[in-house]
Amino acid sequence: MSDKPVEQMSFEEAMAELEKLVVQLEKGEVPLEESITLYERGEALKAHCEKKLKAAEEKVATITTDASGNPTGTAPLDPQ
């Protein structure tokens, strides 16, 4: 488990650590107290990844294109 704060991780770093935690927990070889700590870290990593994905989706959704499908710029996500 990394000592790096979750908020400072890139999406890729967080996903890689989350995958490692899942493997550890699935093996069932971790003591109960450590399992709880790993689970809590996993929840934080999951939330962080979801936040990063949502932000990326919002950016992608705002790219505007012309009739041919070529990018022409960006538009606000909420045009109001």
Rank of each mutant, 00 (worst) to 15 (best):
M1K: 04
M1H: 11
M1V: 10
M1A: 11
D3N: 13
K4C: 11
K4Y: 09
P5N: 04
P5Q: 03
P5M: 07
V6P: 00
V6R: 01
V6K: 03
Q8W: 04
Q8I: 06
Q8P: 02
Q8D: 14
M9S: 01
M9L: 09
S10H: 02
S10E: 09
S10N: 05
S10W: 00
F11W: 11
F11M: 07
E12G: 03
E12L: 10
E12R: 11
E13H: 00
A14D: 00
A14K: 03
A14W: 00
M15V: 13
M15H: 03
A16I: 04
E17S: 05
L18G: 02
E19H: 07
K20D: 11
K20L: 10
L21W: 00
V22H: 03
V22W: 01
V22T: 12
V23N: 03
V23D: 10
V23T: 08
Q24A: 15
Q24K: 13
L25Q: 10
E26F: 01
E26C: 05
E26P: 01
E26A: 08
K27F: 07
K27E: 14
K27W: 10
G28I: 04
P31L: 03
E33H: 08
E34P: 04
E34W: 05
S35T: 11
S35A: 13
S35Q: 15
I36L: 12
T37H: 06
E40N: 12
E40L: 13
E40G: 00
E40T: 05
R41C: 02
R41F: 07
R41S: 05
R41L: 07
G42F: 05
G42E: 04
G42Q: 01
E43P: 01
E43W: 07
E43F: 09
E43H: 09
A44H: 01
L45I: 02
K46S: 11
K46M: 09
A47V: 09
H48E: 02
C49R: 10
C49N: 05
C49W: 00
E50R: 13
K51I: 06
K51V: 07
K52G: 01
K52H: 09
K52Y: 02
L53H: 06
K54P: 00
K54D: 10
K54M: 10
K54R: 15
K54C: 02
K54E: 13
A55N: 11
A56K: 12
A56F: 12
A56Q: 14
E57F: 12
E57P: 03
E57L: 04
E58S: 12
E58Q: 15
K59V: 13
K59P: 05
K59W: 12
K59Q: 14
A61N: 14
A61L: 12
T62R: 15
T62P: 00
T62K: 14
T62E: 12
I63W: 08
I63C: 04
T64R: 11
T64L: 10
D66L: 03
A67W: 08
S68G: 06
S68T: 13
N70D: 05
N70Q: 12
N70I: 03
T72M: 10
G73M: 05
G73L: 03
G73P: 09
A75H: 09
P76R: 09
P76F: 10
L77R: 09
D78P: 01
D78M: 12
P79M: 06
